[in-house]
Amino acid sequence: MQLIDNWRRAHRFSSMRLMALAIVFEGAQALLDLVGWRFMSPSWQSAVSIGLVMAAMAARLIAQAKP
């Protein structure tokens, strides 16, 4: 496995930001489920998670400006 040349600036990539948002969303949903709060239905939760991951995948395909 070889890292990309500018791996230290990867946090600026839109795909990395979208994946971080997906992680935060899933973590928030898990915490809300632990305390018994329901922010959205499980089907909507899955749809939002899948949508964020798909957006991150699409962002990797689009040429991005050099950071």
Results as ranks from 00 to 15, higher is better:
residue 1 M to T: 12
residue 4 I to F: 10
residue 5 D to T: 06
residue 6 N to R: 06
residue 9 R to T: 07
residue 9 R to D: 11
residue 10 A to P: 00
residue 10 A to K: 07
residue 10 A to Y: 00
residue 13 F to K: 13
residue 14 S to F: 09
residue 16 M to H: 05
residue 16 M to A: 13
residue 16 M to D: 02
residue 18 L to W: 01
residue 19 M to V: 02
residue 19 M to Q: 14
residue 23 I to P: 01
residue 23 I to D: 15
residue 24 V to Q: 12
residue 24 V to M: 13
residue 24 V to C: 08
residue 26 E to S: 12
residue 27 G to T: 03
residue 28 A to E: 06
residue 30 A to L: 04
residue 30 A to F: 03
residue 30 A to P: 00
residue 30 A to K: 05
residue 31 L to C: 03
residue 31 L to S: 07
residue 32 L to A: 15
residue 35 V to L: 06
residue 36 G to V: 03
residue 38 R to T: 12
residue 42 P to M: 14
residue 43 S to R: 12
residue 43 S to I: 08
residue 43 S to M: 08
residue 45 Q to W: 07
residue 45 Q to E: 04
residue 45 Q to R: 11
residue 45 Q to V: 07
residue 49 S to T: 08
residue 49 S to N: 08
residue 50 I to L: 09
residue 50 I to V: 00
residue 50 I to F: 02
residue 51 G to T: 09
residue 53 V to H: 10
residue 53 V to G: 12
residue 55 A to C: 13
residue 56 A to F: 09
residue 57 M to R: 11
residue 57 M to I: 15
residue 59 A to T: 09
residue 59 A to G: 01
residue 61 L to R: 05
residue 61 L to G: 15
residue 62 I to F: 03
residue 63 A to R: 15
residue 63 A to P: 05
residue 67 P to C: 01
residue 67 P to E: 10
residue 67 P to G: 03
